[in-house]
Design a protein around this nucleic acid. Structure first.
Length: 154
DNA sequence: GAAAAGATTACCT
DNA sequence: GGTAATCTTTTCC
């Protein structure tokens, strides 16, 4: 095994929602071989490959998921990861992690935040060509690790 | 079976 | 700010 316990963690600072009846969602046209993880139930990790990188989603409901777009250092030390592909690379997430249960924490775990979130901003999603204007992107206002320079306040 | 599009990133000007 | 890289999934004939 490479790095038996290279436990790396980030503080999620930017996500995007992909809901049902969402033209921009991979699940818009129903289940396929690629998006099957999105129908596996809440807490499932949906990892897909785009160009030459991978992006990770956390399934919320059947056919709906949240794209993990960026993460910052947990406290002081640590690596920040700006962008979905960079985030996956920083956490060591590969296509093989697709379909895992992130709540069970086999290899990847998503945990609730313990501290209070300062302020959450809302705005349009990034990098899509359909439903561009829908305000389904959420990020921590003012956080330096957020990918897009555009900063609307909630 | 072949062609086009894509929830990105890196490097060019 | 715009374009190329790169490769898997999806869609059409």
């Amino acid at each position: 095994m490479r790095g038996p316990d290279a436990t790396r963690s980030v503080r999620l600072v930017e996500v995007e929602a992909y809901l049902a009846n969402d033209p921009a969602s991979h699940a818009f046209r129903g289940p396929t071989a690629r998006n099957r993880s999105m129908y596996r139930g809440p807490g499932t990790l949906y990892v897909f490959r785009i160009h030459q990188v991978v992006c990770a989603n956390l399934v919320t409901r059947r056919g709906e998921a949240v794209l993990l777009r960026a993460g910052g250092p947990p406290a002081t030390e640590g690596a920040s990861a700006t962008g979905p592909g960079r985030l996956c690379r920083a956490l060591g997430i590969t296509i093989d992690d697709d379909g895992q249960d992130a709540a069970r924490g086999t290899r990847i775990s998503v945990l609730p935040r313990r501290e209070r979130v300062p302020r959450i901003a809302v705005g349009p999603r990034v990098g899509i060509s359909r439903a561009v204007e829908r305000p389904l992107r959420f990020w921590i206002a003012g956080d330096p690790s957020v990918s897009s320079p555009r900063r609307l306040t909630a």
